[in-house]
């Protein structure tokens, strides 16, 4: 008699395929697709799902969290400045105040709790998945509006083009949040399509850039909200140093902006009692 239940390989494979397919099928149409599972994307995802939105997060890496696991110089102490420590309170992450208004905690603790909160609130994660393009529709004003993303498995991008031709697939959503950091991949794709002109981030006036990031977080293009470091790229704001307060607050602001958009959308209703997916 072994320790574990007697289950064959075929049952395990079927369980993986069936569950993945069922879930993927469900999330082929979401309220919000968040591209990038760094700190701002995770916070936005957790808040939106808590408010009843159907949220899928796409992350190109196998792991979630982006640069949230470590602070500057690959040291895993991360810093936040007041009032962003209130987000750590909300997450149940312990921290200490090292000087007036400056708080430290460990990256692994903060990152894992943020991921767990998003999962607990019912967020669907699609990791090892690379953003390829946007789905464009004509909005009610006749102008183009982003209505989803085109994506593919991340490893496909690593294969030589000569030996592979693996088409991506598209999923639809009412909104897309660009939380892809300095790359601002979603907005960069709109730039490549000639729809926007990105100024790129600047490094000259670096002081107080956290406030600017938070205050610029919001709708950048019909159907697209920018969050976190992508905000700096989109609006040509100064780069930030290795401090996470703005990422957390930008994520919260992105969620608030998305909810405002969703509530103004005909036919949208929050899912009642949204919680962790079984």
């Amino acid at each position: 008699m072994g320790l574990f239940a007697k289950v064959g390989e075929k049952e395990i494979s079927r369980a993986i395929v069936d569950e993945f397919a069922r879930e993927f099928n469900d999330y082929a149409e979401s309220d919000v697709i968040i591209v990038g599972a760094g700190p701002s994307g995770l916070i936005a995802a957790g808040d939106l799902a808590a408010a009843g939105a159907k949220v899928m997060v796409i992350e190109t890496n196998n792991y979630l969290g982006g640069g949230y696991w470590v602070g500057g110089f690959m040291m895993n102490t991360i810093t936040v400045r007041a009032p962003a420590h209130k987000v750590l309170d909300e997450l149940g992450v312990p921290y200490k105040e090292v000087s007036s208004g400056l708080f430290t905690t460990t990256g692994p603790h903060a990152c894992s709790k943020t991921i767990a909160r998003a999962c607990d609130n019912g967020v669907k994660f699609q990791n090892v998945t690379r953003f390829e393009d946007v789905v464009l529709r004509s909005g009610i004003d006749g102008q183009p509006r982003v209505a989803g993303v085109v994506m593919n498995w991340s490893p496909v991008a690593a294969l030589p083009h000569e030996i592979t031709c693996m088409d991506p697939i598209a999923v639809e959503s009412r909104l897309v949040i660009d939380a892809t950091g300095h790359d601002a991949c979603v907005m960069a794709k709109l730039r490549d399509n000639g729809l926007v002109d990105l100024p790129g981030h600047e490094s000259m006036w670096v002081e107080r850039s956290e406030d600017l990031i938070v205050e610029h977080t919001g709708v950048a293009y019909p159907g697209v909200i920018v969050s976190g470091m992508a905000v700096a790229t989109v609006y040509g704001l100064p780069r930030m140093g290795p401090t996470f307060g703005a990422m957390l607050l930008s994520g919260k602001r992105a969620a608030a902006a998305a909810l405002e958009e969703l509530r103004a959308t005909a036919g949208w209703k929050p899912r009642i009692g949204a919680k962790a997916r079984a």
């Binding site: 006036w205 002081e207 107080r208 406030d211 600017l212 938070v214 205050e215 919001g218 704001l237 100064p238």
Partner: peptide, 16 residues
């Protein structure tokens, strides 16, 4: 929108 919020008193960040 950021500049409009600034004019209305709802945003105040400097650095630009």
């Amino acid at each position: 929108q950021f500049e409009a919020r600034r004019l209305g008193g709802d945003a105040s960040a400097a650095g630009i």
